[in-house]
Simulated assay, not measured.
Amino acid sequence: MTVNEMPIIWISLGVVSLIASTDQIAPSNPMGLLAAALTVAAIGALAWAVIAAVRSRSVPMWALDVALPDGWRTSTDSPSVGRVVRGALLPFIPDRRGLAKVEHHRYGPDRRHRLQVFRRRDASAGVPILIHFHGGRFRGGDAGRDSLPLMRSLARRGWVCVSATYRLGDAGAFPASVVDAKRVLAWTRDHAHALGVDPTRVVVAGSSAGAHLAMFVALTPGQPSYQPGFESADVSVSAAVGLYGYYGPRTSEPISSPAQHATAAAPPIFVLHGDHDSIVPVDWARGFAQQMQRVSHHPVAYAELPGAQHTFDMFSSVRAEAVAVAVERFSNWAVGAGRVLTKGPEPVTD
Score class of each variant (00 low, 15 high):
264 A>I: 06
243 L>I: 12
274 G>E: 07
260 Q>S: 15
258 P>Q: 11
237 V>C: 07
272 L>Y: 05
239 A>D: 09
227 Q>W: 01
293 Q>R: 14
294 R>Q: 05
313 D>P: 01
286 R>A: 15
253 E>R: 12
310 H>A: 08
279 I>R: 07
260 Q>T: 10
241 V>G: 11
229 G>C: 13
289 A>D: 10
255 I>K: 14
258 P>S: 04
228 P>S: 14
268 P>N: 01
262 A>M: 13
290 Q>W: 00
289 A>K: 08
239 A>F: 00
268 P>D: 00
247 Y>H: 08
259 A>C: 00
226 Y>P: 02
280 V>A: 04
229 G>H: 13
246 Y>D: 10
226 Y>R: 03
222 G>C: 09
236 S>N: 01
250 R>V: 09
267 P>R: 08
277 D>M: 12
293 Q>S: 09
268 P>M: 01
273 H>Q: 04
241 V>R: 03
230 F>N: 04
266 A>L: 09
304 E>Q: 15
223 Q>W: 01
245 G>Q: 01
270 F>L: 03
247 Y>K: 06
288 F>D: 02
261 H>I: 08
298 H>A: 15
294 R>M: 11
259 A>V: 07
261 H>T: 06
282 V>K: 14
284 W>A: 08
280 V>N: 03
225 S>G: 07
308 A>K: 14
287 G>P: 03
244 Y>P: 01
301 A>D: 04
312 F>T: 01
275 D>T: 15
225 S>R: 15
221 P>C: 13
272 L>S: 14
246 Y>V: 14
234 D>F: 00
222 G>V: 03
272 L>N: 13
224 P>Q: 06
304 E>S: 15
233 A>P: 12
303 A>P: 02
242 G>E: 02
252 S>F: 02
225 S>L: 09
231 E>P: 00
289 A>E: 13
247 Y>T: 06
274 G>H: 08
228 P>I: 12
244 Y>D: 11
306 P>L: 00
266 A>C: 09
272 L>G: 11
249 P>W: 00
284 W>D: 09
290 Q>M: 06
303 A>S: 12
295 V>I: 09
240 A>L: 10
289 A>G: 12
239 A>P: 04
228 P>V: 13
263 T>D: 10
227 Q>L: 07
223 Q>C: 05
273 H>V: 07
287 G>Q: 13
259 A>E: 06
272 L>V: 15
307 G>I: 07
258 P>F: 00
262 A>V: 10
248 G>C: 13
312 F>P: 02
248 G>S: 06
254 P>A: 00
296 S>G: 06
261 H>P: 03
269 I>Q: 15
276 H>S: 12
286 R>T: 09
270 F>P: 02
309 Q>W: 14
234 D>Q: 09
267 P>W: 04
267 P>Q: 10
252 S>I: 07
278 S>G: 14
232 S>L: 12
287 G>I: 04
255 I>D: 13
305 L>T: 04
299 P>S: 11
291 Q>K: 09
303 A>Y: 01
230 F>S: 08
269 I>G: 05
245 G>E: 00
302 Y>S: 03
269 I>K: 02
309 Q>S: 15
260 Q>H: 10
257 S>K: 05
276 H>K: 07
241 V>E: 07
256 S>K: 11
236 S>T: 05
240 A>N: 06
290 Q>S: 10
290 Q>A: 08
267 P>L: 12
294 R>D: 05
261 H>Y: 05
313 D>C: 07
240 A>E: 05
270 F>S: 01
